[in-house]
Amino acid sequence: MTKRSFDQFFKNPRHWREDLVAVGGDFSVDRLLYAYTHGIFPWSEDPIRWYCLDPRAIFDIHRVHFSKTVLRKVRQKKFRISFNEAFPIVMQACSYREKDNTWITPGFIDGYLELHKKGWAHSVEVWNAENVLVGGVYGVAIGKFFAGESMFSFESDAGKIGLFHLFAKLKESNFELFDTQQLNHVTWQLGAYEIPKLSYLDRLERAIKDMVPWVIPLSHD
C-alpha cells in the first residue's frame, strides 16, 4: 500500500478523538512503520485493532528508577547480556502467561520478526550462568524513538536487568523518546508517566526526523 492508502486507512490521531484509530489490515513492515511513525500501535490480532492512546505513557530515558536490588545485580554481572541474539524467542517468552492469554499472538510474532529482519525491531536477552535465557525485552526503534513492547522474567528481576542495559544503549545513542503506551504498576514504579496525546505526537515527530534503523553501539566491557 502507498502512504496515501495508509492515510485513508488510519484515522489521523491529531484530529481523531477516540483511542481506536483503525480496525483490520495486516502486520506488514510498511504498515507497522507507518503506524509507529504516526503514534499508532496494534493491540489485538483477530481483528487487528490499532490505537493511539490519550494520554500516552512514556519514560524519560535519563530518569528511570531502578531499585537498589536491580542495580546490585547489574554490578555483580552474574548475567550475560546480548542484543538481537534471540529475537523470536524473546517474543515467544513475552507472550507466555501462566494464567491468561496475551495480545502477543502468532500474527504479532510473524509481523515483528519481519520488522526485526529489516532492522527496525530489537531485543535484549538476559542469560544466566548456565546460558539459559531468563529475561528479555523487545521493541521498535526508528530514528531516535524507541517503542518498548514487552518484557519477561523467568528469574527475579531478569527483565528489569535487560531494561537497564537497553536504556544504557539508548542513552549512548542519544535517543529522545521512549514510548511505553500505557501505565501499569511495573512501568509506574520504574518512573514512567503520562503526557497528552498531542504532546506525544509532537515529541515523536522530532524523534523520527531522521528515519533510520538503530545501529546498537558495541559493548566496551
Score class of each variant (00 low, 15 high):
residue 89 I to D: 08
residue 90 V to E: 08
residue 203 R to P: 00
residue 141 A to Q: 02
residue 68 K to G: 09
residue 51 Y to M: 00
residue 16 W to L: 09
residue 190 L to W: 00
residue 109 I to S: 07
residue 11 K to Y: 15
residue 64 V to L: 00
residue 2 T to G: 10
residue 83 F to H: 11
residue 18 E to N: 15
residue 159 G to L: 06
residue 129 A to G: 03
residue 213 P to W: 00
residue 79 F to K: 05
residue 91 M to Q: 11
residue 26 D to V: 05
residue 172 E to F: 13
residue 87 F to L: 02
residue 87 F to H: 01
residue 216 I to T: 10
residue 97 R to T: 00
residue 51 Y to C: 00
residue 18 E to M: 14
residue 134 V to G: 07
residue 117 K to G: 00
residue 90 V to M: 05
residue 91 M to W: 10
residue 66 F to V: 02
residue 111 G to K: 02
residue 123 S to L: 05
residue 4 R to S: 09
residue 116 H to M: 09
residue 162 G to R: 04
residue 48 I to D: 04
residue 187 T to W: 01
residue 137 V to C: 09
residue 80 R to P: 07
residue 156 S to P: 04
residue 134 V to E: 10
residue 15 H to F: 15
residue 50 W to S: 01
residue 11 K to N: 14
residue 7 D to V: 05
residue 23 V to M: 12
residue 8 Q to L: 14
residue 4 R to N: 12
residue 192 A to S: 03
residue 5 S to E: 08
residue 182 Q to P: 02
residue 123 S to F: 13
residue 220 H to N: 15
residue 17 R to F: 14
residue 17 R to C: 13
residue 221 D to Q: 14
residue 67 S to V: 14
residue 101 N to R: 13
residue 8 Q to R: 15
residue 134 V to S: 12
residue 23 V to Y: 11
residue 202 D to H: 08
residue 40 I to G: 07
residue 134 V to F: 06
residue 31 R to M: 15
residue 215 V to G: 04
residue 65 H to W: 00
residue 21 V to S: 15
residue 104 I to Q: 04
residue 70 V to H: 06
residue 182 Q to A: 05
residue 5 S to R: 10
residue 62 H to L: 02
residue 83 F to W: 12
residue 132 V to L: 04
residue 60 D to V: 02
residue 107 G to T: 05
residue 70 V to Q: 09
residue 71 L to I: 07
residue 111 G to W: 10
residue 185 H to I: 08
residue 2 T to W: 02
residue 101 N to C: 06
residue 35 A to V: 04
residue 116 H to A: 09
residue 162 G to F: 13
residue 174 N to E: 13
residue 133 L to T: 10
residue 72 R to P: 03
residue 208 I to A: 01
residue 14 R to V: 13
residue 79 F to I: 08
residue 3 K to N: 05
residue 197 K to M: 04
residue 140 V to W: 10
residue 98 E to N: 12
residue 103 W to D: 03
residue 77 K to W: 04
residue 187 T to Y: 00
residue 134 V to I: 08
residue 219 S to K: 14
residue 168 A to C: 13
residue 175 F to D: 05
residue 32 L to M: 09
residue 75 R to L: 11
residue 45 E to C: 11
residue 53 L to F: 02
residue 158 A to M: 09
residue 166 L to Y: 15
residue 194 E to C: 05
residue 104 I to P: 05
residue 171 K to G: 06
residue 212 V to F: 07
residue 126 V to R: 02
residue 138 Y to G: 05
residue 6 F to T: 02
residue 178 F to L: 07
residue 136 G to F: 12
residue 12 N to P: 07
residue 84 N to K: 02
